[in-house]
Design a protein around this nucleic acid. Structure first.
Lengths: 192, 192
DNA sequence: GTCTATACGAAGATAGAC
DNA sequence: GTCTATCTTCGTATAGAC
């Protein structure tokens, strides 16, 4: 393995990029082919399950990458800094794409009449992020139920703020959510 | 007018219902026709702009209806009760649809490569909700910048929680967000 | 002015050539 | 085993009958 999976990998990355801009339903196989500079039939070679399989794998990949970054930041910098980083990441994504590109997991979460597997993958990613953030808040001194409620609210607020930002063509929602969440987390964890 | 616009109204309502389940891209004109029991060509009679116009009008209608309910509840019951009502509404929607049906405005916000008008309409709805909630929090004694940050966070968190709920097939995220938001709002407005 | 039949194009998937 | 050509289905939109 190594060179053989390059084409496959490229298609997967193209799919993630396109899905976060146009959604899964809004992206055609042809779009992925074109973006990855791949021949037409080859996508069915690497993804025999067709678009369904591609959507699921792309969502799992994106969720794992983001989850890894979150876990890393939590371990090194703590929950408040991690939320800051997360917001900053998405703020840049919105800005650099003229408010076209959002969160690939969020896209998979809302679509998937045709792709229930991608939606399940999105749900698993969200759950993992929530658990990691909750654990970090617990280590910072919060009781577990409170840590869990806070972690879920943080993930939901950031995802929702991306949604608002895309529709409003502004980073204002992300800015406000950042302020509010950071303040709340710092107030709660300061009691240690 | 009156009887004449019945068919049009029915299609609009069908569109809202289908969009919140399958998204805009995931819903075909044929689906709307079937759901509204309308003849095939008639949709282009009432919506000459085709799917684009239908998506925009459906989003505006849904946003106005929800905005009206929010404004009414804010005026009569205050911000905390309104958030409770909003969450309860969406929790029921998720439950009653086996986690298939979410927020129509959220659906329009994330799609619309093909329908930018619907996305703009979604943005305007979000902005209106934020402003109404912020004004209510301000009347409850919060300084305006704080009220605005809180209002935006509340809207974002609820929309995000619907997203998580659909993907996780659970109302847990909405439950936790409700607890967290209510507590926060009551703590802030208790200082009056 | 309502509805039916259909044209035109896009998109998903496959078969077979090289 | 990689890519090209094509088949089929579905979806949008329109033209024209009643």
């Amino acid at each position: 393995m190594g060179r053989r999976s390059d084409a496959r990998e490229k298609m997967l990355l193209s799919a993630v990029g396109l899905f976060r801009r146009h959604g899964i339903d809004g992206t055609s196989i042809g779009d992925v082919i074109a973006d990855a500079d791949a021949p037409r039939g080859s996508i069915y070679h690497h993804f025999p399950g067709g678009k369904t399989q591609l959507a699921e794998e792309a969502t799992r990949r994106a969720g794992a990458v983001m989850g890894g970054a979150i876990a890393h930041s939590l371990a090194f910098d703590g929950p408040a800094a991690t939320l800051r980083l997360l917001v900053e990441q998405f703020r840049n994504e919105l800005r650099n794409s003229d408010f076209e590109s959002g969160c690939p997991i969020g896209a998979a979460a809302l679509e998937g009449g045709g792709t229930p597997a991608a939606r399940l993958a999105a749900g698993e990613s969200f759950t993992a992020w929530e658990a990691d953030i909750a654990a970090s808040l617990w280590r910072a001194g919060l009781p577990m139920d409170r840590a869990e409620a806070m972690a879920t609210t943080a993930v939901a607020a950031v995802e929702g703020a991306i949604m608002l930002g895309r529709a409003q063509r502004s980073t204002r929602a992300l800015d406000r959510v950042e302020t509010q969440l950071i303040e709340l987390v710092e107030a709660l964890t300061a009691e240690s």
